[in-house]
Amino acid sequence: QWKVGDKCSAIWSEDGCIYPATIASIDFKRETCVVVYTGYGNREEQNLSDLLSPICE
């Protein structure tokens, strides 16, 4: 189960590419979260089910 502060990978809606991110907040009722893309600072809402394991850098 994901928690705030977890590192993950998420698909950015603008280009469909996968980027490393950190979970900033979680809404368990809606099963969504807000991620912050590492190195970019962009925030975006994602479905918890769409999150991927962190990418090894």
Rank of each mutant, 00 (worst) to 15 (best):
T38V: 10
C17G: 11
Y19L: 06
W2D: 14
Q1K: 14
T32M: 08
V36I: 14
I26T: 01
E57P: 12
S49N: 08
V35W: 08
K3V: 12
C56Q: 15
E44A: 05
Y19C: 01
D27K: 06
F28S: 09
C8A: 00
S25I: 10
V4H: 08
Y37K: 00
N47P: 08
E44D: 06
P54S: 06
K29R: 12
K29Q: 13
G16H: 03
I11R: 15
Y37Q: 00
S13R: 09
E45K: 05
E45F: 07
S49M: 07
N47K: 14
W12F: 10
S13N: 04
S13M: 07
S9Y: 15
I18R: 12
V35M: 06
I18M: 07
G5Q: 02
E14Q: 14
S25H: 05
D6R: 00
D15Y: 08
T22W: 11
I55S: 09
W2R: 13
G39M: 11
I11E: 03
G39D: 03
F28Y: 15
Y40L: 14
N47E: 05
L48M: 04
E14P: 04
G5L: 04
D15P: 04
G5N: 06
S49C: 08
A24P: 02
Y37F: 15
D15A: 05
K29Y: 12
Y40M: 15
D50Y: 10
K3Y: 13
Y19F: 06
L51I: 08
Y37D: 00
K7N: 10
K29W: 11
L48N: 05
I11W: 10
D15Q: 07
I26W: 04
G16T: 03
E44I: 05
L48G: 04
G41I: 05
I26Y: 00
W2S: 14
Q1P: 07
G41F: 05
C8M: 00
A21P: 05
K7V: 11
S25M: 09
V34D: 00
G39L: 12
N47Q: 10
W12E: 01
R43M: 14
S53Y: 11
T38Y: 10
C33M: 05
T38E: 13
D27C: 10
I23Y: 04
G39A: 10
Q46I: 10
V35F: 06
G41A: 06
N42E: 04
A21L: 06
T32P: 05
A21E: 02
E44V: 05
P54L: 09
T38L: 11
T22A: 03
E44H: 05
I55V: 11
G16V: 06
I18C: 15
S13L: 07
E31V: 07
A10S: 03
T38W: 12
K29P: 05
C17D: 07
F28K: 09
C56N: 14
Y37L: 01
D27Y: 08
R30L: 09
Y40W: 13
S53L: 15
S49H: 08
K3P: 15
E45R: 09
T32L: 06
G5I: 06
D50S: 05
G5R: 00
